[in-house]
Simulated scan of single mutants.
Amino acid sequence: MAADNSGLQTVSRALAVLRCFQGDVELGVTDIARAQNLAMSTTHRLLRALLESEFVEQDEKTGRYRLGVALAEYGQLSYRRHLIYLAEPHIEQLAIETGTAVSIATRRGTDAINLAFTRWREAHGHNLSEVRFPLHASALGKALLAWSPTTSDELDTLPYHLGTDRTPQSTASLSAELEAARSAGYTINDEQTEWGFRIIAVPVLDPEGHARFALGMRGTTQLMIPERIPFLANLARVTAAAISDTLFETPTR
């Protein structure tokens, strides 16, 4: 049993090391050891194993580490498994029509994970590496919550300490926002995570009427003025319905 526990600890530590690279950065051994509170020797050993399996790669000049090609391979497999590539023509067309950056996300635990996004007119700014957002602090996450059978107990577990003073700070405030979103037909992030940008999101419903995915549109406050948001939300709902038809009427291969 001790050996099993030791093995599980090693796997857990290796996964924690990989999470250090979520910001799409290059890191040195000291950076990783400090971030994970690990001994340098342990960090070296974990990185060596990850390097051999191609989960990370090392810059020959600087000695620093970055994410490796193995993760790209697994990412492509997951991408195809979720049939997201079938949604791409729809999100690209919506981006062209509106001048916004469009993305599609799903839920993982207490976060929303972007699975695909466009880069139309650079409307999304410079944060291309950001793919994971707290559910309560993002329009995509709130759409996933609002149109799913989420309980109050689940809402209680969300990390309300993450976000800004403009994001919901409690289950009560989030519940009120989700109720308003269901009435409006869309959720909104009004400069809650980045000044100068608004994001609206709508659900992509499965055959049971639950939000399997969420479709988001991101643009500057000059582009997404309040008077234009209902129009944009309507376009997003039409696109979301088309994506739903495409994804859930296509047999899994």
Rank of each mutant, 00 (worst) to 15 (best):
A139H: 03
A139F: 03
A139E: 00
L140P: 00
L140V: 01
L140W: 00
G141Y: 00
G141Q: 02
G141L: 04
G141V: 02
G141P: 01
G141R: 02
K142I: 00
A143H: 11
A143N: 09
A143L: 14
A143E: 06
L144H: 04
L144P: 02
L144V: 06
L145Q: 02
L145N: 01
A146R: 08
A146Q: 06
W147R: 13
W147M: 12
W147Q: 08
W147G: 05
S148G: 09
P149G: 09
P149Y: 11
T150V: 15
T150Q: 06
T150W: 02
T150R: 14
T150F: 01
T150E: 02
T151Q: 13
S152R: 15
S152P: 05
S152W: 09
D153Y: 11
D153N: 14
E154N: 08
L155Y: 04
L155S: 03
L155Q: 04
D156Y: 08
D156F: 09
T157N: 09
T157E: 14
T157C: 07
T157M: 13
T157H: 12
T157F: 02
T157S: 14
L158Q: 04
L158P: 01
L158T: 03
L158V: 05
P159M: 13
Y160N: 05
Y160P: 05
Y160T: 05
H161M: 13
H161R: 15
H161E: 15
H161G: 10
L162R: 14
L162M: 13
G163N: 08
G163A: 12
G163H: 08
T164F: 07
T164Q: 07
D165T: 09
D165R: 13
R166Q: 13
T167V: 10
T167S: 13
T167L: 10
P168D: 07
Q169A: 12
Q169G: 11
Q169M: 07
Q169H: 11
Q169R: 14
T171Y: 00
T171H: 04
A172T: 09
A172S: 10
A172E: 13
S173M: 14
L174S: 07
L174T: 06
L174W: 06
L174C: 10
L174P: 05
S175G: 07
A176T: 04
A176C: 03
A176I: 02
E177C: 06
L178W: 09
E179A: 15
E179R: 15
E179P: 02
E179L: 15
A180T: 07
A180L: 13
A180D: 09
A181C: 04
A181W: 01
A181L: 05
A181P: 01
A181V: 05
A181G: 03
R182D: 00
R182H: 01
R182F: 01
R182I: 02
S183C: 12
S183T: 14
S183A: 15
S183M: 14
A184W: 01
A184E: 06
A184L: 14
A184V: 02
G185A: 09
G185H: 08
Y186R: 13
Y186G: 08
I188E: 11
N189R: 06
N189K: 05
N189W: 03
D190C: 06
D190S: 12
E191Y: 07
E191G: 05
Q192N: 06
Q192I: 04
T193K: 04
T193H: 09
T193V: 05
T193N: 09
E194P: 00
E194L: 11
W195F: 08
W195S: 11
G196C: 07
G196M: 11
